[in-house]
Amino acid sequence: MSVLVYVEQADGKFKKSGFEAVSYAKAIADGQGTHLTAISIGNVGDSELKELGKYGASKVLNVSSDQLKNFVNQAYASVIVEAAAKENADIVILSNSFSGKGLAPRIAVKLKAGLVDGAVELPQTTDGKFTVKKNAFSGKAFAVTELTSVNKVIALNPNAFGTKESAGDATIENFTPEVKTTDLTAIVKEIVRATDKISLPDAELVVSAGRGLKAPENWGMIEELANLLGAATACSKPVSDAGWRPHSEHVGQTGIAISPNLYIAIGISGAIQHLAGVSSSKVIVVINKDPEAPFFKVADYGIVGDAFEVVPKLIEALKAHKG
């Protein structure tokens, strides 16, 4: 038995969430007393593939074919399941990213495996049970889920586990599975990716603003603060509904759920649906002119004040801090 981890890449580079998945999978492999194989699909160079060894993979299967250049979940699932069979892996790990969410369920069905998506901790294996804690009720609770099947699939939430280096070297092996044409009926026509922006689900730091900002032209200071911090920007639902910010920035129960190390909420009241998506952030800062705003109840740090006065002060202080 062994553990297999699928590591996502974009433009030939692995994502941070991918290294987290490898670190997490390594810890599981250690717990099971077995070794870890990683699989990469797409065109990734050898030095980048070698990186996976640093996080604990002892072997890397490199699938590099033009047919599989773009992510098609149906085909990728078949390849990963074939790799699992070849490696005799009974546990498959991947990231709970947008792509991972389309991939993990297909892998689970092929392997007749139970799936935990949105795992936030390492599995527990007491009393012969294999349980994993995951987010549930949009961040309002956790569900400890037991996987009762022989094979198991776990999709790890970004920024839940961190990366852990473990001195090691990975051997790289080219893997060329046969791809069925029926697995390639969905065709990727176009990929649009803003490379200059930090992607929200992966971000460690997030600056978010709400209706308290009053108008879209006031986001300049929010972006400046985010840039200085190296943070991603987010917003509340009414802000994206009004078209002030793109929908991809909308966090909360009906938007994206995130768990960054730092979430700064500016001019956001803290409605239950908003909190649902952000309450698992490690540190929460709230800036609001209303001392009674519900958001202060779940904050670690608070500033009661006018955003238009407070944010420029923070920008000044950050510039000074950075020297």
Partner: peptide, 21 residues
């Protein structure tokens, strides 16, 4: 293949630390 065995609610946060504006 899977079942929820237990639910947990997030640990409450400590009191908020206020910084004057």
């Amino acid at each position: 293949v899977a079942k929820v065995v237990k639910f947990e609610t997030p640990a409450p946060r400590g009191a908020v630390k206020q910084v004057p504006a």
